[in-house]
Design a protein around this nucleic acid. Structure first.
Lengths: 235, 235
DNA sequence: AGGCTAGGCGTACGCTGTACACCAGGTCAA
DNA sequence: TTGACCTGGTGTACAGCGTACGCCTAGCCT
């Protein structure tokens, strides 16, 4: 019953501690592992204690995203807007890749925290500083979409090592045959990516290359429009 | 106790009926309104009855997405791959816009149903039929990402008519001033979109125009690379 | 000394998905 | 005709979730 006994070795809670613990939890088990109860347990505290430091789980997730975004380092000034944007976005990508859950978390967020707005603002200003019109910048940022956070929508990705581990090679071959018949287009582009090896179709994508390809495609387009003095048709 | 009395006017359940009811529910209240219990109640049935027709809620959502995708009508054959892809994607967009929840549902889905693969395959084949190499097609489809479903990542969107309805015009003005100071880039591109009117910043985006802009930007890029005989650097 | 406040605790509510056992009605074979 | 079997709807129950509300204690400030 000595004061402080049962709480020995436990620093007092704080918003920062809560957020950092949540990030750790997510790093280990993904966003879905972050529940108020699990988080509280990790902090040696009762669930409701957390609410003295975050208003709700939504706000908790916002804070976690902010923490990830804070990892984005300001890149060296670049000679042109093209490479400046590129560097900033790839910087964001490093931060996001560092936390595998961040993609899903960012996509699910609906409110714009200061950190989120900050990054968007930074990107926008790089375009504007490069001479692009606000109008063109606006459209281009829409076109970039979530890619300003450094990730692409995962069209092909899969994560299904669950259930049937190996449904007989024979049966598997049959499925492959049916797949080839029904979805020849997908098969063609999937094998193109792996150079003929179609085991784990679409699994062998080089995500980094894919991301940079798309980013450059978009920036190329932006540059071309900018140079040709593009103006929005409704302006 | 006459047979069939308590079930009068209730057609027997079926996978189709379950799925359609779920879609209606989502149409009215969004995906988050679709719970097994709510769905069961709408069908005048006990929750567990649904599990005789769908394996799990995940599978239910898959089925709902399939239903939306089935609304995509095959467009008339186009003279060139460019407009063929464009037509198909805009067709998907019509279907997805018809169900406001579909975007979120598609994004959240992890497994690829036949309908999903079918659409991806159709798009891929349009590229291939147009003469694009499988390799380029693969990259371009990655670059298109979720846009092949007809929607862009919603960078700016918001839906927060909750809570504080009007935090005093004076206070609002102060917030606007602070916003302008901290995020001048965002402000610039937002006002560019609305032509100077900054009430409801970023809210006045013409989503359709924005989508087509991005789509054309990507297709332009693809066309250019195709014409210049692009080959992937790692091939 | 007395009150205020910040912060952790405990209980409880309503919601979620779904496992498991049961049971009525229909079909089909013996 | 009888009994087995399958299909599909029912009921109960469980574990987990976010969080509203009230209590209690320690420290600070007047």
């Amino acid at each position: 019953m000595a004061p402080g006994t049962d709480r020995a070795g436990r620093a007092p809670l704080s918003r920062g501690r809560v957020l950092h613990a949540a990030v750790e939890l997510a790093d280990e088990g993904g966003v879905e592992a972050v529940s108020m109860r699990a988080l509280a347990q990790r902090l040696g505290v009762v669930p409701m204690a957390l609410y003295k430091h975050v208003a709700s789980k939504d706000e908790l997730l916002d804070g976690m995203v902010d923490l990830v975004l804070a990892e984005i380092e300001n890149p060296d000034p670049a000679p042109d807007w093209r490479s400046a944007v590129r560097a900033r976005v790839l910087g964001a990508r490093r931060a996001v890749l560092h936390h595998r859950w961040a993609r899903k978390a960012i996509e699910s967020r609906t409110s714009r925290t200061a950190a989120v707005l900050g990054h968007m603002d930074a990107v926008a200003r790089l375009f504007l500083a490069g001479g692009l019109s606000p109008d063109l910048t606006h459209h281009v940022m829409h076109a970039l979409g979530n890619r300003i956070w450094g990730f692409s929508p995962e069209l092909f990705e899969e994560e299904s090592p669950t259930g049937a581990p190996a449904p007989h090679p024979e049966q598997q071959a049959a499925m492959a045959r049916e797949f080839a018949q029904r979805f020849p287009g997908i098969l063609a582009i999937a094998t193109a990516a792996t150079g003929g090896d179609l085991s784990g179709v679409g699994q062998g994508c080089d995500e980094d290359a894919e991301f940079e390809f798309a980013l450059d495609l978009l920036l190329d387009g932006a540059e071309r429009l900018h140079r040709s003095g593009w103006e929005s048709t409704n302006g």
